[in-house]
């Protein structure tokens, strides 16, 4: 098995109220010097069998169809070490 990680982030032009809330909380805790925070989602997909280009294309399809909403979000797909 191998693990494929899909990271989903709101597009830069879309307001991220959650990230903003985190950014506002940080200086209150003494963590200074952080100009902005954007919050995203990380999906870990444990894939049965070998990772082929075809499998990756399938996973990109899933990321585009279900895991992200391309209207407001961008995603990246990467393979982690075998597990």
């Amino acid at each position: 098995m191998a693990r494929v990680v899909v990271d989903v982030m709101l597009k830069p032009e879309i307001l991220d109220p959650q990230g903003k809330a985190v950014a506002q909380a940080l200086p209150r805790l003494g963590y200074d010097g952080i100009a902005a925070v954007r919050q995203g989602k990380r999906f870990e997909l444990d894939v049965v069998g070998e990772i082929t280009e075809e499998r990756l294309a399938q996973i990109r399809g899933a990321a585009e169809t279900l895991l992200s909403n391309p209207v407001i979000e961008d995603f990246t797909v990467r393979v982690e070490d075998a597990i």
């Binding site: 709101l10 879309i14 307001l15 109220p17 959650q18 903003k20 809330a21 909403n69 209207v71 407001i72």
Partner: peptide, 17 residues
């Protein structure tokens, strides 16, 4: 309807949270 692409755009968290 937006997720189904029957309508354009999307709905996100209220700006005041």
């Amino acid at each position: 309807l937006c997720e189904s692409h029957l309508l354009p755009g999307a709905l996100i968290r209220n700006d005041h949270r």
